[in-house]
Design a binder for these strands. Structure first.
Length: 840
RNA sequence: GCCGAGGUGGCGGAAUUGGUAGACGCAGUGGACUCAAAAUCCACCGGUUUCACAACCUUGAGGGUUCGAGUCCCUCCCUCGGUACCA
């Protein structure tokens, strides 16, 4: 056996074994409990980064652990292959996005294989393949027929110089990231999916997700943002349509002193006619990117249109302002403002000297100081005519009822969630399968013409998608009337592809249907693992897509992901490792120097999975040292040291062969430690805290290698003189330790397991069991406190009752010292743990 | 701005239900081995006071609840993630 730990060699051997034996390819087996473990697939950016290593190691540890627990484990892998970086690389390097992407996939696949992940590679998919995206196009046409998709105008960031749409990320300080031209907001027609039709169900079903982190559920709940309120109609003289606004505080209606509309609102446009000031102001409002963060943090600006709305109750004139923080595409593009009871309205009113009219007052009769800030609490109404004296809650109903009776409003459930805009004016994405016919309007591409294949042999420039300039792509005939028509040249948001890949893995080879009956065996995903940055958008869209697929009869489940583990970020120098920030660490160097097991172990040991992990080059060495020590012990048990496992090798049950009847107290103490560390590791494995599983493993190794009484050293020569019981202890301990660590460092575990003498491989071995008889103790140590402060530790019989514990605690000299001259008021006993004596 | 997390030694972190703060590892210091170095092994390793025994302080800051708070409550500060076209 090799003297030195040689990760490159043993990892290659283990991986070869798995490959030759198809160890991780699975099929549906109705007799076995299935376990579908899915890690979020990567964008093929070029190389794996540490975030991938962390994500995929977590998924792999869970998969291998579940396999050792006897489950039929599916762990697939694929590529989220459409996206902007391919276009950016194409512009920079003059390489077609497809070529760049497929080359990246090939390289990253070798990196994943080098890390030894237990994937069923037979199910690999890439979302840029027509055989994948054709089904998404097919589903979209079904949804088009069902009326679940529609076209409307929506704002995008537009660079007037490059004549192109910019992503929010491509807007830096309000300017284009390439040419630094100030970005403007532009409204263009786009396709939307009616996710709001599912808002209530998406909200309600969060309650079914018992094994999701509470933080993710909370974020999703707030994102969906259900609120009950009233839609109020404000008549505008000379206009047919009233100004419609939604409010959750109809009780403050009598305090409305102005209205605010978006710059794109028809009333704003109207006011601009003949007013240069307003025209300029609207232009200024449009020079802002469309992100919510900038919308909410920008300086609030407004301008009076001179137009008036009629208050629906008082009949008074209310001035209509244009405001830069109201967006046309959210809701109705207008809001009512109550400066006395809303802080943003209050600030705006102070700035533009608009009346602040208090109508809600604290119930205790006090007067809020509206010179300081708005009074936003609920209370009792005044200055509200017939509603005076009502509480906010009662006024809500009374005013809603008044408006409904008068035809000036109606109660409404409102969601913060907006419909999902899926159009992108980009090249590297799945073409939207719609044909625009001058006679028939938008028409779905018939099934027989799917997929609409994206041409891959293109040159991408900085000014718009190449397929928009390619008549061979967009010129076509209408499937309805046969006349000349044009294809949509927009492509889908890449969140479309990542919203259903989890289901496609169950039947990735099916070329006649999107999904088949195999999804009913594998779905839902039992454990989903991915970055916390996907807590809202990706997970919400995937949940939505699952419901769409269910309602079309493709799946049977309500929710796609049973349990969710959101790993923390991998940080370097305090911020997220990302290509755009240029602070990535290439894991390849780590693998080349130390091997895959060290890389895996480091990422699992450095932090618990849900916390962020600060990268440190130095800390890797400790993980590697541990593996070297593990190798050394494994080596010492090899050869003539291998225990007789004749009867164990047939059954492959490692617990079987040991006989502890001759063990002495020291030997029992070693076993007690090993099994108590194992018990800790079991608990931690179940709650997915892998760093302390490793910590327990380190302590087992250190327990096993401690010099034993009568033997000074730990060299193989000295160890070889140990008696048969010590030999058994080490063998049992190693058998436990290797299985405990096998999910985390599978290669070294594979190699050393074979040396222990078992016939099977460690991936097929069962997870180790705690021998509870090894844990028994005659005496335990408890803590004694006086007034909550630790004063002594005493040993008591393990079966001592509370009274005995108290008696022994009071007998302690140190305790006596601290209670001298005081009266004992109370004694608290925590069985088996602690006694606290309260005295003064 | 809003929503969601996090803040514990020099560093990463542990403390599972309110019950011994600092497990395990990194770095550091001292020692063994060596001609020497590397590697390896052993010991020490939060702060202040003390010859010592020991005492006191300490989980971002301030307050509260409790016999007892890193853990629960309130206020504040800082960092990170998301904020709908980065994925």
């Amino acid at each position: 056996m090799d003297e030195l730990y040689n990760p490159q060699k043993i990892e290659q051997e283990a991986q070869q074994y798995w490959e030759e034996n198809n160890s991780f390819s699975v099929t549906e087996d109705p007799d076995k409990e299935k376990f579908y473990c899915l890690s979020m697939f990567p964008y093929p950016s070029g190389q794996l980064h540490m975030g991938h290593v962390r994500n995929y190691t977590i998924g792999d540890v869970i998969s291998r652990y579940q396999r050792m627990r006897g489950k039929n484990v599916l762990q697939p892998m694929g590529w989220d292959a459409f996206g902007m970086p391919a276009e950016n690389a194409a512009i920079k390097n003059k390489v077609p996005p497809a070529k760049w992407t497929y080359e990246n996939i090939d390289y990253m696949r070798t990196q994943l294989k080098r890390l030894g992940f237990a994937y069923d590679w037979g199910r690999e998919l890439a979302t840029c393949q027509p055989q994948y995206y054709r089904w998404e196009q097919w589903l979209f046409t079904r949804l088009f027929e069902k009326g679940l998709v529609y076209k409307k105008s929506a704002a995008v960031n537009w660079c007037p110089h490059d004549q192109t749409v910019l992503a929010n990320e491509q807007v830096v300080d309000g300017c284009c990231w390439r040419c630094n031209t100030p970005v403007i907001r532009k409204e263009i027609p786009q396709w939307f999916m009616r996710i709001t039709d599912y808002a209530q169900e998406l909200l309600d079903d969060l309650d079914k997700l018992k094994d999701w982190p509470e933080r993710v559920l909370a974020m999703q709940r707030n994102w969906i943002g259900r609120s009950e309120g009233v839609e109020v109609y404000f008549e505008v003289p000379g206009h047919d349509q009233p100004l419609k606004v939604f409010t959750t505080r109809p009780d403050t209606l009598m305090g409305v002193t102005y209205m605010a509309v978006a710059a794109e609102h028809p009333l704003a446009r109207e006011a601009a006619q003949g007013s240069e000031d307003i025209t300029l102001f609207i232009a200024r409002c449009e020079t802002m990117d469309v992100s919510e963060a900038s919308l909410e943090t920008v300086e609030k600006l407004g301008m009076d249109t001179g137009l008036k709305a009629i208050h629906p109750v008082s009949g008074k004139d209310v001035p209509i302002y244009i405001a830069n923080f109201v967006l046309m595409t959210y809701g109705e593009g207008a809001v009512m403002a109550v400066p006395a009871h809303d802080q943003r309205d209050w600030e705006f009113a102070r700035k533009y000297d608009i009346t602040i009219e208090p109508v809600v007052f604290p119930e205790d009769g006090s007067e809020p100081d509206l010179q300081q800030c708005a009074y936003v609490e609920k209370g009792v109404l005044r200055n509200s005519g017939e509603f005076n004296g009502l509480s906010s809650a009662k006024a809500f109903d009374a005013i809603a009822e008044y408006l409904e009776k008068a035809g000036k409003g109606q109660r409404q459930v409102h969601f913060r969630l907006r419909d999902w805009g899926v159009s992108r004016q980009r090249y590297w994405g799945a073409p939207i399968p719609i044909i625009n016919c001058p006679a028939c309007g938008p028409v779905a591409v018939p099934d027989t013409d799917l997929p609409v294949v994206l041409p891959e042999d293109v040159i991408v420039e900085g000014t718009g998608s190449p397929i928009k300039k390619m008549p061979s792509f967009y010129e076509t005939t209408c499937p309805g009337c046969g006349g000349k028509a044009e294809r949509e040249t927009d492509t889908f948001d890449t969140f479309m592809e990542s919203s259903w890949y989890f289901a496609r893995y169950a039947c990735a080879d099916n070329d006649t249907a999107m999904l088949d009956e195999r999804v009913n065996y594998w779905l839902p995903v039992d454990q989903y693992v991915g970055g916390i940055e996907h807590a809202i958008l990706h997970l919400l869209y995937a949940r939505f897509y699952n419901k769409l697929m269910r309602d079309i009869g493709l799946t049977e489940i309500d929710e796609p992901f049973n349990a969710l583990l959101t790993q923390g970020m991998v940080l370097k120098d305090g911020s997220k490792m990302s290509k755009s920030k240029g602070n990535t660490v290439d894991p390849q160097a780590l693998i080349d120097e130390y091997g895959a097991d060290t890389a895996r172990m480091f990422t699992m040991f450095a932090a618990p999975p849900e916390q962020s992990l600060e990268w440190s080059d130095d800390a890797v060495a400790g993980a590697h040292r541990f593996l070297k020590r593990l190798w050394k012990l494994g080596r010492s048990l090899h050869g003539e040291w291998a225990i007789d496992l004749e009867h164990a090798s047939t059954a492959n049950i490692p617990e079987a062969p040991y006989d502890w009847s001759n063990a002495n107290e020291e030997q029992k103490a070693i076993r007690r430690k090993v099994h108590s560390h194992l018990r800790k590791a079991n608990d931690d494995m179940e709650r997915q805290q892998f760093n302390t599983v490793i910590s327990a493993g380190m302590q087992i190794l250190s327990t096993l290698t401690q010099p034993v009484p009568g033997h000074s050293g730990n060299s193989p020569e000295e160890v070889s003189q140990l008696g048969p019981v010590y030999k058994q202890i080490r063998h049992e301990g190693m058998s436990i330790l290797l299985r405990m660590l096998a999910p985390i460092v599978p290669h070294i575990a594979h190699a050393l397991w074979l040396k222990l003498g078992y016939s099977g491989v460690v991936i097929s071995a069962p997870w180790p069991m705690v021998d509870t008889s090894a844990l028994q103790l005659d005496e335990i140590e408890i803590v004694v406190q006086v007034n909550g402060k630790l004063r002594d530790r005493i040993k008591i019989p393990s079966d001592a009752d509370n009274a005995a514990m108290e008696k022994r605690a009071l007998a302690s000299a140190k305790v006596q010292q601290h209670i001298e001259g005081k009266t004992i008021r109370k004694t608290i006993v925590v069985p088996g743990k602690l006694v606290n004596i309260v005295a003064n």
